[in-house]
Design a protein around this nucleic acid. Structure first.
Lengths: 191, 191
DNA sequence: ACAAAACGTTCACTTAAGTTAAGAAATGAA
DNA sequence: TTCATTTCTTAACTTAAGTGAACGTTTTGT
């Protein structure tokens, strides 16, 4: 369980046995059942999440309809907007599957930064990397048609098509479920 | 000139006179003429930018057409993807107007982090904030129609409509210039 | 095992965006 | 100022997405 986390972190810094122990002692590994709501609209939360195993879904409810904007799977992390904003959350986050997550709040972060300053460097670098990745994805979304976006997802995140219902992927790709269905039929016909 | 930077930073930390001097001594304020290319496709760069005055435009050239994905104005910052990726840049960044920018590379960052560790905390927090803002904007883009996006821009970034040509705003809003023109006519008719 | 709910596809119709082209308006350089 | 270029708008036509509904399949809970 810890391995997913430490393997991921080892790309950035080497951790001593003591440092690893300090992390484990924080008791940050939590299990959640499929369907569990991690975050609700209107809620305030200063917890951040890292997916060890499973899949999280971020969605808005707009005019009574769910609009999915993000899916987080193994070795991906996310911090709710409300954490920094200090406003109530605009969206929900739920578990698409039974999941194991690393869960940490600001207080825990602060205490570990004080004990091991290099964790702050780590967090800064990880966040910079996420920001960059986020820009790439946004740019790619803006410059592609729904059909191209679907083809890109087939290449870059083929697992999502298996684990997530089509009608949830639709809004993630910026279209309605019927359009996604049609678009897939169109692609099949072309081949 | 420094004021734009220090006013902005004062929201996050208090800087001593010494710390401010250390920043100014880095000689990071640079002027650029309208049209100057700050970053080219294919280029490697480890510089980050903060806009004191002016406007930057990030664009791709896809099938010979410019696709604009971001505009940066006063008190906004950006780091090129290639800085962390270590791959060649996929896009161009140019000055929409005569601009004054804070320009710093990784080496300068590193030296200032060593002298004043609290700058690293500052950078971590600023980056977290940018990431959160970026997620909000992406979510908003995904869950809106082009018409709604234009109306949102009218509210949130009305200055852009004045400073940036319409045909550049079009791809930023995810449509062709003709569609933006039509969409604006449609809005006027409704009122 | 069964009924209910959720899911995916298809269809007909509507609405909006893409495409191509033409012309008017604004901008900039000589 | 004039001429050329760029920018913006309009229009006619094409293509794709939105909408509402139907239908069969799969999944879920009891």
């Amino acid at each position: 369980m810890e391995n997913t986390l430490f393997d991921y972190l080892s790309k950035y810094i080497k951790l001593t046995h003591n440092e690893k122990k300090a992390i484990i002692d924080l008791d940050i590994f939590k299990q959640f059942k499929k369907g569990t709501l991690i975050l609700r609209k209107g809620q305030f939360s200063d917890y951040g999440y890292f997916v060890i195993k499973g899949c999280l879904r971020c969605y808005y409810i707009i005019d009574g309809n769910e609009k999915n904007t993000a899916f987080y799977t193994e070795a991906e992390s996310f911090e709710p907007v409300c954490k920094i904003d200090k406003k109530a959350s605009e969206y929900f986050v739920s578990c698409v599957e039974d999941s194991i997550l690393v869960v940490a709040n600001s207080e825990m972060e602060k205490s570990i930064f004080e004990k091991f300053p290099k964790f702050e460097t780590l967090c800064r670098i990880l966040t910079e990397e996420l920001l960059i990745k986020s820009k790439s994805e946004f740019d790619n979304f803006k410059t592609s048609s729904p059909e191209q976006r679907y083809l890109t997802m087939l290449q870059k995140r083929p697992d999502l098509i298996q684990r997530v219902p089509q009608h949830q992927l639709a809004s993630f790709l910026g279209v309605k479920p019927q359009s996604l269905s049609r678009l897939r039929a169109r692609i099949l016909k072309k081949k």
